[in-house]
């Protein structure tokens, strides 16, 4: 019991403390690729600290939904973070909800965030909410179908079981179904975390914003919570993608050396994925909003092909 609680605390700390680092790494890397110096690696931590210490302005038109949103979003995202396997295949709380719970907890946060965007009554908030709900809705079938493909292979929707099923079969990612599902989920990752070519996290131009428009009215500690949640969500999705498809290091035993090895592998996997995301961001221009469905349709068909190839190649997919 005590051990369980301790594990939950450790994982919570990991998700809370590590997620800003990934965001910072992404930003720095992107700047370097574009031959800029960019912000320091630890800048997100400084931002959080600063924002948490600031006062805030609450729009006079807002209701109790506005202050409630950051708490719900933060709690839902952090809870989703406790359900996923990070450095060990056994996530501390994976038994109280599998991959469906993770997806729906993120959806709960998004639901409130979109309401928070509408609450102030400014046109930006509405614009952001509308776009966010649209993009997430059309990304959903691709996400679910790809998840289903992996879950069917593992015979479970429990994430720890899924990761364990993947441990043992080291060359499994070469199977077409796995590669296609990975490609589909990668596109979904880009869409869900609001990166180029779907959304531009750095923009403040109303025609192109999605996420930024929705949270325009938030300031101070509330903004800190929302930003932090966005980073945690990014980390959760990236971890999910890497650990389900490339379960290296998850099987390591309990010794200190093995733990260290797992942690190093975990960091390396996320760094590689972050590099891929940054490359996509650097090499592409943002799509028009109405071209996004085309991208997500491709993701959907990729995941459908992933599913089909589990039996298309006579059991060898």
């Amino acid at each position: 019991m005590i051990g369980q609680i301790a594990l939950v605390m450790v994982q919570a700390a990991l998700v809370l403390l590590f997620s800003p680092l990934i965001a910072g790494f992404g930003k720095t890397l992107k700047a370097r690729l574009q031959t800029r110096r960019g912000p320091a690696l630890l800048q997100p931590y400084r931002d959080l600290y600063k924002l948490l210490r600031k006062g805030m302005v609450i729009p006079e038109t807002a209701s109790w939904i506005f202050p409630a949103t950051p708490y719900v979003l933060f709690a839902a995202t952090l809870l989703a973070g406790l359900l996923i396997p990070t450095i060990s295949a056994q996530a501390p709380l994976s038994w109280i909800g599998g991959v469906l719970a993770v997806v729906y907890l993120l959806a709960l946060g998004r639901f409130f965030l979109a309401l928070g965007g509408l609450d102030a009554g400014s046109p930006f908030g509405g614009l952001g909410s509308s776009r966010e709900m649209t993009i997430s809705a059309i990304a959903e079938p691709a996400l679910m179908l790809a998840v289903f493909t992996v879950a069917l292979g593992a015979g479970s929707t429990n994430l720890s079981t899924m990761a364990q099923a993947a441990v043992g079969q080291s060359w499994r990612f070469l199977a077409p179904s796995q590669m296609l599902a990975f490609a589909a989920l990668f596109i979904v990752l880009i869409a869900e975390t609001g990166r180029i070519p779907v959304d531009n996290p750095a923009t403040h131009l109303e025609l192109t914003m999605t996420h930024e428009a929705m949270i325009l009215e938030y300031s101070g500690p509330y903004l800190a919570l929302i930003e932090w949640s966005a980073w945690m969500k990014q980390m959760i999705l990236m971890t999910l993608l890497m650990n389900v498809f490339f379960p290296y290091g998850l099987s390591a035993g309990g010794s200190a050396g093995a733990m260290l090895f797992s942690v190093i592998l975990f960091v390396a996997k996320l760094a590689i994925l972050a590099l891929a995301v940054v490359l996509v961001e650097t090499l592409n221009a943002k799509l028009r909003l109405f071209r996004v469905p085309e991208l997500l349709a491709v993701a959907f068909v990729l995941s459908a092909l992933a599913l089909i190839s589990t039996f298309l190649f006579g059991g060898r997919g």
Partner: peptide, 20 residues
């Protein structure tokens, strides 16, 4: 094949919203 507990999810949600 997968488990979920809405009651525990709800408890955790309440508990975690204290973190902020």
């Amino acid at each position: 094949r997968g488990t979920v507990s809405t009651l525990l999810l709800a408890c955790m949600l309440v508990a975690l919203s204290v973190v902020p």
